[in-house]
Amino acid sequence: MLTCKQASELISQSLDRSLTRSERWSLRFHLLICVACARFNRQLASIQAVMNKWLSDTEQDEHLQLPLQAKLRMTQALESEIAASRRRP
C-alpha cells in the first residue's frame, strides 16, 4: 500500500517519466480510494497544462522580438564567425 507521500511522488514523476507497470497499478489503486491524492493529481495536471500552454503561446507571440541592438550585434558576430570559418580548412 502506498502512503499519500509516496503516491504524491509518483504523481509528480508520472509527468516526467513513464512509471513502471507496478507503480502504475499501485498508484491507480491509491487514487481510487484517496480523494486528497486524486485532487492533487488533477491539480498538478492543470498546473502542467497551463505551463505548457504558456510556453507555446510565448513561443508563438509575434510581438516578442529580439531587440534591434541585439540583432545588430549578432549580425556582426555572425560576419566575423563566417570570415573565421572560411580561413579554417
Binding site: 504558456w54 510565448t58 513561443e59 516578442l64 529580439l66 549578432m74
Partner: peptide
C-alpha cells in the same frame, strides 16, 4: 528564426 529562438529561450 532569431525571434522564435529568442522567445523560446526567454520563456525558459
Amino acid at each position: 528564426h532569431g525571434d522564435y529562438l529568442y522567445r523560446f529561450a526567454l520563456a525558459r
